Simulated scan of single mutants.
Amino acid sequence: MTDTGFAISAPLRSHVTAWQRELATIRRLSPKTVEAYGRDLDQFMAFLSAHIGGTVDLGDLKQLRPADLRAFLAARRRADIGSRSLARALSGVKSFFTYLEREGVMALEALSVVRTPKLPRGLPKPLSASEAKAVGPATHEMEVRPWIAARDVAVISLCYGAGLRISEALALTRADLDGSALRVVGKGNKVRLVPLIAPVRAAIEDYLRLCPFAVGANDPMFRGVRGGPLSPRLIQLRLEELRGALGLPASATPHALRHSFATHLLAGGGDLRAIQELLGHASLSTTQIYTHIDGERLLEAYRSAHPRS
């Protein structure tokens, strides 16, 4: 912990050091995340030190009430800290107390009744149509093994050309290919049929033709280099490589391609309820987030169609 002008007891400081070591070596969090968690705990300890008027020790922590934790969050809020930073601060504090409980030092029930601050709903960050289209050809240029290039292009095509989640794409079997449609099992085991446009079907067929492993009707379609099911991390890494090669934004991820699918359909005049079905959203309100992205097109539709526009 950094020297911020407050005091904690030696036993408590020892536990803090051990907790930070666990974050870095066992949980393998990034150095910046460990630093941020430590800073959040510093701020919490500084608040407690001022609150009790002295050195903070384990006995003080055991006596914490929900009101004390809420007072800490309120103090941070008054310092003009946003909801996202507040949520992370509470997460860091909870992580430390979870460590103490796991080590048999103490348990703090007060944390369980303090709610995480509501986070503002972020808008998806879709790629432009030209950026999304460039991903496939660039993959073939970067990967010398034809079957792996074809595999990655097929998965990426399913994310952008069919709006699939990466988990849905990697769970597909050959039996899920049903003529011109695709049988997709989404969240909650909800099954939906998604039309396959010609480029996506061609990408899948190209991969299946080149794949060196036998793919049975009910086997996972996409394979790793040793023949096992393909890890989503490999597709994420492929997108990271493509970000550098094509100058794509940091938001260019497999899920961003799904966002791009929905946004570009909406921009092209797609019906919101039809897009809801294609994405597998249980509620239309989830799909309506895309109307915020393409508000200009909706405004133009209003101007051209409404009698009083």
Rank of each mutant, 00 (worst) to 15 (best):
L172W: 00
A250G: 12
K32T: 14
T55A: 07
C159F: 06
P212H: 02
G227W: 04
R297C: 06
I197N: 13
V113Q: 13
P254F: 09
A71Q: 09
A282R: 12
V16I: 14
F222D: 05
P124T: 08
I156Y: 00
S128A: 11
Q236S: 08
D40N: 13
R88Q: 08
F96W: 10
Q63G: 13
D294N: 14
S95I: 09
V114K: 08
A46C: 10
G59I: 04
M142W: 03
N189H: 06
G188M: 03
G269Y: 05
A89T: 09
D206E: 11
V155P: 01
E143C: 09
C159R: 02
D219W: 02
V191N: 04
A274K: 08
R223C: 08
L73E: 06
L64W: 13
Y290H: 05
G295M: 14
R39I: 14
H281N: 12
D219I: 00
P307Y: 06
G295T: 15
G54I: 01
Q63A: 15
R303T: 09
E35S: 15
R76D: 07
E143K: 07
S128F: 06
G186R: 00
T287Q: 01
E277G: 06
K133S: 12
H306N: 08
G268H: 08
V144N: 14
E240M: 03
A10S: 14
T263D: 09
L111P: 10
T287A: 01
G247I: 04
R233I: 10
T98I: 13
P126E: 07
I156A: 01
H306R: 05
V184M: 00
Y160Q: 02
D40W: 09
G136N: 04
I8N: 12
S85K: 02
D80I: 02
S30A: 11
